[in-house]
Design a protein around this nucleic acid. Structure first.
Lengths: 220, 220
DNA sequence: CGGGTTCTCCCCCGCGCGGCGGAGGCGGAT
DNA sequence: ATCCGCCTCCGCCGCGCGGGGGAGAACCCG
């Protein structure tokens, strides 16, 4: 049916990630990577110019993050592209914002190449599958309630430390955290130690409790 | 990659719907419709027998509706199939229940054949795409706003074990728990071990997470 | 240019933790 | 009277964890 290839723009500040995505997608028939961006601002302008069908948007980017970029693109362009937000952790707090911003889907950085390709094809032809408006309504509901007060220590956490705390709160060991973040075990330990210090926790269990009690992460 | 065809079971009380789905899927390479069911109860037994990779489950069915059937399948089978719930309207109230029941996705009856095929292929190889745990969490949140029912393991906890889990979730060490309960450290260890076994947790941290996620204890 | 922050990684050490198996008492159910 | 579940306690053992220290590289900012 869709004769024309799916035109894709990649937005990620890490060259390696962009290259990986490009290699995978370019090898695919019917998919064409037509542009790249390294910042959120660049993503907006590139998309405005190239008018792709799909955008793979990283969350963490300089200048403007992926969420704001998504908002701007969807707000300012008519017949906007489908935007897939790329995250490292599926329970990253950003996914709620991404939903609210109107992203067409998520993609984990550890996703298989096959999943990536299917994701692009899928969103290119509509998002009524697996992702109905009802889910978006849920997200809106979630965003609507509570600004959620957070203790001071949350702000003091560095990005990496926040990542680590999220993984701790998922029940991972130091070694598993290291694997998930693609760093050495010693590094994971360092971050864990920093989290314990900043949260005032004695051990990882207390840190996880603090994460729940502060609203840093929320139970089902 | 996946040499073996995707084995699908269709559960719908309307013959026309089943036929339509079968025609579409059988025409597809790598997808094989191995069975059908016309009621929820039949769906459970058919799935139990045939062990398909994917189930397309209608919501409205005689005897047992698709939601309950989904719950039963996911609860009783190990390595259960991915279940896609078929609805007529995307904002059908059932989708919340479906999410909560652990469905891998939605499919609208008016979806295009192409979407249907992609849905099957997609869920067959994992649901980390477009449908992360976070979304499921949202649904659980929504559902939690009345029933708030706990997993099976909560009921299986003895009184003492429940006490211990509460103290674990307060961040106490084994020795501190022993002191608080006026028992020996060895006893506390025994109870902790029992809690870990019954919750399926690997360590006390995962047990505390389970306590929060199940609503056994609530933040704030 | 230098200073601050962050991320990365290394060493050593002590200990709490979790897994293992066993044991005795005590109550209710059959 | 018998069985079973719960609570109580005991050892042993390996390992992951947390505390302490230090160190190099990248980056931003003044």
């Amino acid at each position: 049916m869709s004769r024309a290839p799916v035109r894709v723009v990649l937005a990620d500040d890490e060259r390696m990630v962009r290259t990986a995505l490009r290699v995978i997608l370019d090898a695919e028939e019917g998919i064409e990577v037509v542009g790249e961006a390294t910042t959120g601002a660049e993503a907006v302008s590139v998309v405005r110019e190239l008018r792709p069908d799909v955008v793979l948007m990283d969350v963490r980017m300089p200048e403007i993050d992926g969420i704001r970029a998504t908002e701007q693109i969807l707000a300012t362009l008519e017949d906007p592209p489908r935007i897939v937000v790329v995250t490292t952790f599926e329970n990253d707090a950003y996914v709620y914002d991404a939903l609210h911003a109107g992203a067409a889907g998520f993609l984990l950085k550890r996703a298989a190449a096959e999943e990536l390709v299917q994701a692009v094809r899928l969103v290119a032809c509509g998002d009524s599958l697996l992702y109905p408006a009802a889910v978006r309504t849920l997200a809106a509901e979630h965003a609507a309630r509570q600004p959620a007060r957070a203790p001071a220590w949350v702000a003091r956490l560095t990005g990496r430390e926040a990542d680590v705390l999220r993984l701790m709160a998922a029940g991972l060991t130091n070694a598993e955290i290291a694997g998930r973040l693609s760093v050495g075990p010693a590094t994971a330990k360092t971050h864990v130690a920093a989290v314990l210090a900043k949260t005032g926790a004695r051990d990882r269990t207390q840190a996880v409790i603090a994460a729940y009690e502060s609203g840093f992460i929320t139970p089902g």
